[in-house]
Structures are given as C-alpha cells and as structure tokens.
Design a protein around this nucleic acid. Structure first.
Length: 111
DNA sequence: AAACTGACAGGAA
DNA sequence: TTTCCTGCCAGTT
C-alpha cells in the first residue's frame, strides 16, 4: 500500500461506507462500479486493508453468492455474521439469506 | 526479480 | 444445470 494507487482502495471504502444498513453488496458490483470489472479480488484486498479502519462496514460486503467468505479475516469469525444479523440481515451458515433481496447495487441504488 | 496467493467472477466444458 | 478453468491487480514470499 504505501502511497499512490490508493485511489482504488479509497473508492472501495467510500462505496462500502455508503452501503445502507441492513443491506449487502458483492465485490464484483463494487469493482464494476469502480470501472475495474473483473477485479473483484482487489476489492476484497482493499477490505482487508480496511480492517484496521473499523469505520468501514466490510461485513456488508460478500461474494456473488452472498457467502461471508471473508469472515475469517474479521476480528472474530462470527463477528461478520453477528453484525449482519444485528442490522437485520438474516445469515445462515455464513450465508446471507434473501441475498438477492438485500443486494445493494451501487451502480443502480447509489447512482 | 519471479512466482504464488488471494474476502471473486464469469465463461467454457 | 453443475463443475472446472482462466482472468484481474496487487501484495507477499
């Protein structure tokens, strides 16, 4: 990370921070929104770096299937699911229920 | 400096 | 329809 090029990361943080409570989104959606379609992995990487920055609700970001794949990188493995449930998002077996219903597309919702 | 890995996603078999 | 394989970009070893 260092400096420069953080632009992409900052963009990710900004979008993630804009995610409405009780709502979730996918890495690809953010990546695409940032114009980095296909680089969903980078979004995940950015979120890891966002861990220290608790200001970012990374728990609202899951993969395409709505699975909490990154819970392992959280403070606690269950912190992610716990927070989501706390916000009203039903999570079962590390998987978001009604993901398509809670899905928040920045390209459409945010616009 | 090169190669592998990684919180994913999408196309091909 | 399900499963496998490749692609993206950066960081780590």
């Amino acid at each position: 990370m260092s400096d420069k090029k953080e632009n992409f990361f900052e963009n990710v943080y900004e979008v993630v921070k804009l995610i409405p409570k009780g709502r979730v989104t996918s890495y690809g959606a953010i990546a695409t929104y940032l114009g980095a379609k296909g680089s969903a992995r980078m979004v995940g990487w950015a979120l890891i770096a966002s861990q220290p920055f608790t200001k970012i609700p990374a728990h609202r970001v899951v993969n395409r299937v709505g699975m909490l794949t990154g819970k392992q990188h959280f403070e606690a493995s269950n912190a992610m699911a716990e927070r989501l449930m706390q916000e009203g998002v039903k999570v079962e077996n590390d998987q978001v229920v009604d993901f398509d219903k809670l899905f928040w597309d920045p390209s459409k919702e945010l616009l």
